[in-house]
Design a protein around this nucleic acid. Structure first.
Lengths: 158, 158
DNA sequence: TTAATAACCAAGTGAATTAATAGGAATTAA
DNA sequence: TTAATTCCTATTAATTCACTTGGTTATTAA
């Protein structure tokens, strides 16, 4: 019941992008270095984010990535679902869509449990907008100053 | 972000036990057969449930398992945490307890996201008591009758 | 035009985790 | 004493994860 590094790294990467971005694009190598994530691995994650319409890219020299939408129109749920896929606790089509692929639907009691977990997770992550994290992040960085020791702490394994 | 078979099988096993039990104990082999789960594997799961004080056991011939508490005093959260461990979306001690093992605590912005997801999951599962599932299960079984085709449907992969 | 930069893409790999399987020891009722 | 049952540990097969490798394509600046 854990998020993979896809979700954890990916959210940090988007947040980094959101904090840094001022119109221009940011090279992935910068994000990778700041966040201490392998550049090649991060490529795979950002590909998912691009596919989901969360980031835009510009190719070639001086290229990079930017948010595809204002930060207040991107939810943590959008980001995590793009990276992790469906956030439901089990793979059961009944939980998410209405077409009954699960033949045991009527008799599957635990389904209601998974549905409630699923709904609560999605409600939680959809209720947090990226802009909110950007604000918190800016506030925290302002308080912490810009000394090297503090800056290094901004790289958090989770 | 998926539950393992531990949580899925284990919850079904406890529910089975709760539905079947009338004072006496139930042999694990019966639960395993009804639920279509390997007996040996189920042993490992029920050991966790016993350790967590959710079920009691009686050894020897005619022995078996029973609920250690009334079904309305056992939450789905108790069961899932016993089987899966902590239900938080990341392994970060900061999320659960108050002693600050995570040195990046102050600067870890995504921590607040994990905390909110964690809380929402735990609230959801702690709000569902086993007795509620037993009721739904009995109702569904009454509606479905006891024909062989319907009974087989009660075994649901999820 | 060329070199550098940076996004894009697909396949492979090693480690870790999961999901069992296997086999036996201890306990108890009949 | 025997069959049934829980209890315990170790091993293994399969799967998933977390990268790594090795490119290609597009764009810009010199």
């Amino acid at each position: 019941m854990k998020l993979s590094t896809k979700g954890r790294y990916g959210l940090r990467a988007v947040l980094d992008l959101a904090v840094q971005t001022e119109d221009e694009v940011i090279a992935l190598s910068q994000i990778a270095e700041r966040q201490g994530i392998s550049m090649n691995y991060l490529e795979q994650l950002i590909a998912k984010l691009k596919k989901a319409g969360i980031v835009n890219s510009i190719r070639g020299a001086q290229g990079g990535y930017s948010l595809a939408l204002p930060a207040n129109q991107i939810s943590v749920g959008d980001i995590l679902r793009a990276l992790e896929g469906d956030l439901a606790p089990v793979d059961c089509s009944e939980i998410n869509n209405s077409d009954s692929a699960c033949s045991n639907a009527d008799l599957c009691v635990t389904k209601y449990v998974w549905k409630r977990i699923s709904d609560s997770i999605n409600d939680a992550v959809d209720g947090i907008m990226l802009s909110e994290l950007v604000e918190v992040s800016r506030k925290v960085q302002a308080e912490a100053g810009t000394s090297d020791t503090n800056r290094s702490k901004q790289i958090c394994g989770q």
